[in-house]
């Protein structure tokens, strides 16, 4: 029984929890099966020539289906990043830590992942990174098989130059392969 108390109710917990049954779809399922084996794969748009990772099965620019699987490097470049200072409930990572938008070599789309094994002020746009994997025994159908990315000893990349190079490569691919319209 509650006490007849006059302690004013100042705070109220009102969590909202939405339970989803998430279906990965064919393209992301293939991506996750490969990542379970320790491989990073993207898919190339046959219209723009760009390589999308993680693949969703269609080209975000044109909406056309993507079929060609492209094996990707484990190295990439920081496109943008943020240093997280506020702890997130149920997240075991202690702030401050770095979350970066990373583009893998040979791909044209960024994804978000952790950056670690560095001082936070060491990271800039264009910092070169490599994937650090969990122990193989822990690999599952998740991008978390890559524990985080860490800086590698390579010169900082000029982002605008990288973008121009990638665009030129995609255009060259379209030229060489006809390119679906």
């Amino acid at each position: 029984m509650s006490e007849d108390t006059n302690d004013f109710v100042e705070i109220m917990e009102s969590p909202i929890v939405l339970g989803y049954n998430f279906s990965a779809g064919h393209a992301t399922s293939r991506f996750l099966r490969e990542i379970k084996k320790g491989n990073l794969y993207g898919q190339r748009s046959s219209v723009t020539g760009k390589v999308i990772v993680p693949p969703r099965g269609s080209d975000p620019e044109t909406g056309t289906a993507t079929h060609e699987e492209v094996k990707l490097a484990e190295t990439g470049t920081v496109i943008s990043f943020t240093i997280v200072h506020i702890p997130i409930p149920n997240n075991p990572i202690q702030p401050p830590y770095i979350i970066a938008n990373i583009v893998l070599d040979g791909s044209d789309q960024t994804f978000i992942h952790l950056v670690s094994e560095c001082e936070n002020d060491q990271i800039t746009q264009g910092t070169r990174l490599e994937a650090v994997w969990k122990d193989e025994s822990e690999w599952d159908y998740t991008f978390e098989n890559v524990k985080y990315f860490r800086p590698i000893d390579e010169p900082v990349v000029d982002i605008d130059k990288l973008k121009a190079e990638r665009l030129a490569e995609a255009e060259a691919w379209v030229k060489a392969n006809g390119g679906d319209k």
Binding site: M12, S14, P15, I16, N21, F22, A24, T28, Y141
Partner: peptide
């Protein structure tokens, strides 16, 4: 196709 259950939760505390 791979499927998984997924809870999206917001731990609101309101004044």
């Amino acid at each position: 196709v791979l499927r998984a259950s997924f809870d999206l939760g917001f731990t609101y505390t309101r004044s």
